[in-house]
Amino acid sequence: MKMNNRYFLPFMVVAIASLSSCSSKPTSTTNTISPTPAPSMAQLRAKPNNTKSQAVSGKTVNVTLYTSDIQCQELVPQNVAVPATEPVTNAVGKIIQGQDTADFSLSGYRIRVKNGVATVDLRLSPQSKRQFVSLSSCEQFALFGSLRKTLTSNTQWKIKEVRFTEKGEDIVL
């Protein structure tokens, strides 16, 4: 069977145009971490404006982060390098970065260490649909347990106790 190019070519153009205009909407909204993640809004808000000195010096220190295992039974140590200028703040930022979900989001945090007591002041994002009290025991363990263990186990920081606040008020769970 011989095809007439006069009819075949317009058909192909229409077919290609139709295929290229197809779009699909995502079925869910999930945050994914790229191989080299950009700093989260929480990290950007928590860090003082010293990124220029970090970029110039490039100095890092190794710290041990503790994150929850998949069953929320244990905190697993992981050695990571963080900028040497603000190691405590940067370690907290790395833990918080993994805590955002589709309905729970932090927009910032502040760290204050005084007399061996670290106060981690957390800020919920205005778009967060859930509050701290609505976190499951697993989510609480992953967030608060990871932060507490990381801050108290890195002995170079001399932190003995960790308190959690939201906008200056104690977080009561």
Rank of each mutant, 00 (worst) to 15 (best):
N154Y: 11
V92D: 09
S136G: 10
I96V: 15
T29L: 13
L122T: 05
P39S: 08
S20T: 15
L122S: 05
A81I: 00
V133W: 01
C22Q: 12
S68K: 02
N31I: 13
L151S: 06
V82L: 09
S21E: 04
I33M: 10
T60H: 10
M41G: 07
S107C: 08
S146P: 04
V13H: 07
P26H: 07
V133P: 00
A102F: 09
Q43N: 10
D103H: 13
D103K: 13
V162I: 06
R6H: 11
F141M: 08
T27C: 04
A102Y: 08
Q131G: 00
L173A: 06
K129R: 13
M12R: 05
S18D: 03
S57A: 15
N79C: 00
V88H: 02
L122C: 09
S125T: 05
D100T: 14
G168V: 01
A15M: 15
N49T: 11
T101Q: 13
T155F: 00
E86N: 15
V13K: 11
A102L: 05
S137G: 09
N49C: 05
P77L: 11
S68D: 02
T32D: 10
S40P: 02
V13W: 07
E74Q: 14
K2S: 14
N115A: 15
S34G: 10
V117D: 06
I171A: 02
L143I: 10
M12P: 02
N115R: 12
S136R: 07
T165D: 05
V120T: 04
V14K: 09
Q127Y: 08
L19E: 05
K149Q: 15
M12Y: 07
Q99S: 07
L65A: 05
N115C: 01
S134L: 04
Y109R: 06
P26L: 14
G108W: 02
N79Y: 00
I171N: 04
W157S: 08
A91H: 04
